[in-house]
């Protein structure tokens, strides 16, 4: 009798287990169907961000262009947003942005590529493993710290040699920005050079070329697309850089080419106006978005160009 009830019990257990299993399975089936949709929703947040940026920038910029003609904005050399008869010409800002970018690239371009050559072609494995992370610390330092450095150290240093340089000027933040971009150019160019196969170097060595000749005549031409796209990315980074120029270049809106003077970049203008309590709905408030849209288009074009270059001219080995 006792054994019989035992088997009964077991039988019920198995049935229950199967039922349980089925229930679980339907639940997990449900999850399996639900999960991809859910993940797709999460993944579309990054799309929403892009859409959000474009819509906010361009709807407000269009509002601005209803008040200030597009033509006046892009060709005006006078920027006087705060005055009684405000004028909104963006050229002084574009000028400041391009000049600071140019100074930065004069520093970061040659030094970045020479560092890349050293790390990729000359340094031994051990040296590279020490130098590369150290160089990357430079890229991890917050830009506000560079701004502080430019304003309280580099500018006074320049002024002690050239007293005619202003307390705020475009030269010092440009130079410091260049130092900030060095690791980016160095590491991207080094990646490009390291991916040139060794057999090509060995071919040059076998013909009697020195390391230098191999570098300039074999490695750099083969890695050129990567090197140029690292430059373009560096330019894009310099155009978008904000805090260094905001702190060290002041807020003069003069249209000038004199690098010893204060100039304002597009980014610094956005900081100045938005922290100055521009009342929502005023023309000066909308000018923020017009400038930001211009900045956005500049950097977007640079990034697209960089991607195009590295894809189009990449040599496959």
């Amino acid at each position: 009798m006792a054994g019989n009830s035992d088997t009964n019990k077991n039988a019920v257990n198995v049935r229950e287990m199967i039922a349980e299993k089925k229930k679980k399975k339907s639940l997990s089936n449900y999850t399996e169907k639900f999960i991809p949709t859910f993940l797709l929703l999460i993944a579309s947040i990054s799309l929403l961000t892009t859409v959000g940026i474009i819509i906010t920038l361009f709807t407000e910029a269009i509002e601005f262009f209803k008040r200030v003609p597009v033509w006046e904005f892009f060709t005006g050399t006078v920027l006087k947003p705060m005055s009684q008869n405000p004028e909104f010409g963006v050229l002084p800002l574009i000028n400041g942005t391009l000049i600071s970018t140019f100074i930065a690239m004069l520093v970061a371009g040659p030094i970045g590529i020479m560092s890349a050559i050293y790390l990729s072609e000359y340094a031994s494995d051990r040296v590279r493993r020490v130098l590369k992370p150290l160089l990357e610390i430079l890229a991890g330092i917050p830009t506000i710290v560079y701004g502080f450095f430019a304003f309280t150290f580099v500018t006074p240093l320049i002024r002690s040699i050239f007293p005619e340089v202003g307390a705020t000027n475009i030269l010092s933040p440009g130079l410091v920005m260049g130092v900030m971009i060095i690791p980016m150019i160095a590491s991207l160019s080094e990646d490009a050079m390291s991916s040139v196969p060794n057999s090509m170097r060995e071919g040059a060595f076998a013909l009697g070329a020195t390391k230098l000749e191999t570098t300039f005549k074999v490695v750099i031409p083969a890695a050129l697309s990567g090197i140029i796209s690292s430059f373009v990315l560096g330019i894009s980074r310099a155009i978008g850089e904000t805090m260094i120029v905001t702190i060290a270049s002041g807020s003069s809106k003069n249209f000038t080419f004199d690098i010893t003077q204060s100039m304002q970049t597009m980014t610094a203008y956005i900081v100045e106006v938005s922290s100055g309590d521009a009342p929502a709905g005023s023309t000066i408030y909308y000018s923020l978005y017009a400038v930001a849209a211009t900045l956005f288009i500049f950097t977007l074009l640079m990034n697209i160009l960089a991607r195009y270059l590295s894809r189009k001219f990449r040599e496959e080995y």
Partner: peptide, 23 residues
């Protein structure tokens, strides 16, 4: 989506600031 993400990575941080301010 991948292209979009790499474009987002290149947008200057100040533009995100304006996005945050507006939204």
């Amino acid at each position: 989506i991948a292209t979009n993400i790499s474009n987002l990575a290149g947008v200057p941080s100040i533009v995100y600031g304006l996005l945050g301010l507006t939204i």
